[in-house]
Design a protein around this nucleic acid. Structure first.
Lengths: 217, 217, 217, 217
DNA sequence: AGGTAAGCGAGACGGTACGTCCCGTCTTGAA
DNA sequence: TTCAAGACGGGACGTACCGTCTCGCTTACCT
């Protein structure tokens, strides 16, 4: 089961109450009666979101524009996602994708996976989505949980299962890599390949040596 | 707009909107004529911004609320800062402050300084401002430059002058620390003291060992 | 904006501001799709306008106040009327109403109708609206046309059809009566019943004698 | 003593309390101490006002624009006139000017004077000023008084003195002529020469026959 | 085959904030 | 004192999105 599938389905249907009255979760299509939902809407909307977010920043992308681009009514979007942020999380998960399969042994493969993540977050669409969500997550605990569950956890989990490293340390590594790359681009507009390498090395080093490093002058 | 300017541009050159042009930078006080700007406005607005941003997130803080809290007209704010972002940068610079003076020798003092930065960014006001600005910086190169110049450069410069480390490496350290802490809080709502330590150690380690680290399993 | 329109114009053709285009005319209800406009909004807004304009002058009445009084969002007003002036014309037409039916023969009835008009324009709401619009009409040809079509023409037409007088002469009579009454009140704050009589007589006299009168001392 | 002089001086210095604290009246330059007022400011400001009001409508002309055009500071304007309306009245009086001297006998000369007034009010500058003031006069009794004293009364008075007609009737004639012409232009954008003639004839007829006319069908 | 329940497109709606414009007042320094 | 210059408080403007709602129509499943 790919991370994307896991994300879209959710790791346990997680009906933790998004949306007051509506049934906004994409997954629980359980209802048998009535006209079934158009199957292609979800992908169209998610792709439209990612495409628009590739050009302008997240806050500049309006729901109306997404709806227009996806050739879908705004109502149809809000029927599936209760807010722009929720939609963005799904769009991000879909755009981000899964790390490539890697048959190599431990450290090499782990480094490659972290490097892949660092590379992905440099892309405008991923970056804009993530930065926009980080902003909104500051004022919405549920969004934080969703973000964790859909973006960070799948990655962490994959690494843990495959190469037996501790989850909490991997979480930190992910936060360091994503945070550092995003912040550097936010400050400078871009980040050089060398600096990406540095950040990844830094983080992965911590992964294997343990997080705490003694400093001698 | 001075009369001289008006004469040069010709009367009726701009059929409406005299006085529309602004000189928004707080710094270029150059103008010697006319009523001088109230000296206390800047501090009042900046403090009001920081105070409001301590409670809710940056995007939730309206210019009207800032004006009301600073007991100042909205127009007065727009006369000095051309946008909310520009105002936020100044508020952040003011709120952040300078690292405490430190007489100790090299590594210890550097670590302390970086640790101080990590601690500051955990505070709600600094964090909200910085996260909000990172979001907006994605779509505004000038804001990026401003952010660099007002927030990161002073810190970097202080470290470089005092303890002779390379600026580009310090920049990276700052980005790693800020990025990692912000991202962790965005994902988890909080960051433990231990994790802060880890991140600081990680970054400072790189500072002294050089950025690139070879990894052996 | 329909999906079809969007497709024709191309996706992303207008990078922001979807839905920015308005169809402000209250009349062209043509659109059959979408949520229908609330039927009671128009009357509520128009009545609110007339009521507020009865107290203070037209320029003092804000759109926000009208919206508040009509218990309607400001955006809803701007969706139907593209400007305050357009709204005022409709409010004026509604408030002014039609001259009372009159079965009497020619001159008597005509005089009564003109007298009715003179009486109506003395009322604060009609007067404030008309004076405000006259001011704005000076800088807006479309508003002039609208004003003619909605206010003067219906009255003129009614008189012409019923009693067979020439339209151009009736137009002049209307302008004389309205103009004179408004101008007198603007200059003096009020106009006596006798003067109203004089003005009406003056105008109606011209109506039947023809407009040009030779003067011998 | 010309009407303009009469207007500028005021028919008795009339210190009826415009402006709370300031001494805004142009006339009472009595003060002996301090720097004397620049003599040319008044004409420059009044001319600038008339010139600007010739292009755009009264409400579109800002005090800043007038100040810029007159090459004068806004403060200087407000030192002499307490509001835009008061300034406009003076500008109107100056622009309007006096009826040309006329040695002919009674009716002919009276008709010529009224015709001159009708012609003046067709000019854009006079018209815009007058219409704008009529609008504002609706909400300001003092402005009404000023308008009467400076615009209508001098004209009326001149006619009364010279040809011995009753003031109240002349007032009505003036209101009919000005009102009708202004209203027609407001409605139609222009008024033909024939219609001006008609209006003048109408009014002057009333002047000599007495206002009330019996109507027989 | 008809009924029922939901999906869908379209767009109106309430609400909030924005950034601009202009008014009339004020505060400085120089004349 | 006057004047130039321009900051200031205040109020309204018209726009932009958000997320909700209400229509009429469509499309499945269930009697």
């Amino acid at each position: 089961m790919s991370v994307v599938e896991l994300i879209v389905r959710g790791p346990g249907a997680s009906p933790q109450g998004f949306g007051g009255r509506r049934r906004c979760d994409v997954a629980d299509v359980a209802s048998r009666t009535g006209r079934p939902r158009r199957a292609d809407v979800e992908a169209a909307v998610l792709d439209a979101t990612a495409a628009l977010v590739g050009d302008r920043a997240y806050a500049q992308v309006t729901i109306d524009a997404i709806a227009a681009r996806a050739v879908v009514a705004k109502t149809t979007i809000y029927r599936r996602w209760s807010s722009k942020a929720e939609l963005a999380v799904d769009a991000l998960a879909r755009t981000l994708g899964d790390p490539p399969v890697d048959d190599r042994d431990g450290a090499t493969a782990v480094r490659a996976a972290v490097g892949w993540l660092a590379g992905r977050v440099r892309e405008p669409d991923v970056r804009h989505l993530l930065v926009g969500l980080v902003d909104e997550a500051g004022r919405d605990p549920e969004l934080r949980a969703r973000l964790r569950a859909r973006i960070r956890d799948p990655f962490t989990q994959a690494l843990c299962e495959r190469w037996e490293v501790e989850a909490s340390v991997v979480d930190l590594v992910v936060d360091v890599v994503l945070g550092a790359v995003l912040h550097r681009i936010a400050m400078s507009g871009d980040i050089g390949d060398g600096d990406v390498e540095s950040v990844v090395d830094l983080a992965v080093h911590a992964l294997f040596r343990g997080p705490t490093v003694s400093v001698e002058p």
